[in-house]
Amino acid sequence: MIELRDVSKIYQIGEERVRALDHVNLHVYPHEFVSIIGPSGSGKSTLMNIIGCLDTADAGQYLLDGVPIEAYSEYELAQVRNRKIGFVFQSFNLIPKLSAEENVELPLIYQGVKRSERVRRVKEALEKVGLSQRAKHQPTELSGGQQQRVAIARALVTRPSLLLADEPTGNLDSRTSREIMEMFKELHSQGNTIVLITHDNDVAREAKRIIHILDGRLSEVKL
């Protein structure tokens, strides 16, 4: 599903060059639940953004479902982000002016789904994360955990084959974190491919496969 070959990403800040990713090789197969763990600044988000087609690598090759990412046009990349990938961020990234259901509806609008179908699927996705009661609420009226659940519903509503989560529990207390993790496990059991990033060992352990990242280099942890 995901194949990274010798991927590097270098940030240039003035004179200084930061090698955020250093010749990374990674293979993620369908229906896997992979967690990537590493300390802050180790390059986790950079890796995730490349996998999520939000950013591009400076060197190396990234194949998504066997197709090199450079082969996609900008429009096709938007489609990939829209249909194939569901993204959950540490900081939720909901649009503040829109209600929970409108936030969830947004990717479907970009997909061109009919209104009746949209309504049905939004309802379904919000039910899945247990937030049907809060559909009309604005993000500011929701707790962190609820916001993250809305974000998960938004990631799920398009039924993406790949779910990417960048420290989804990073801004949550431990109890809500556990709830969110339960949700990911359940999604995995339903057949979703999940890549989860965290700096928390307990969270990482929930996954079937754990990968360490340090200074932009990966190392597999065998259980």
């Binding site: 939000l54 900008e74 429009y75 993204f87 961020f89 990234n93 990717p107 970009y110 938004r154």
Partner: peptide, 16 residues
């Protein structure tokens, strides 16, 4: 800008 980023991340194209 951030809203634009979010929209793009969830699949808005340039045209959208």
């Amino acid at each position: 800008t951030r809203e634009i980023g979010i929209r793009k991340a969830i699949g808005a194209s340039r045209g959208n």
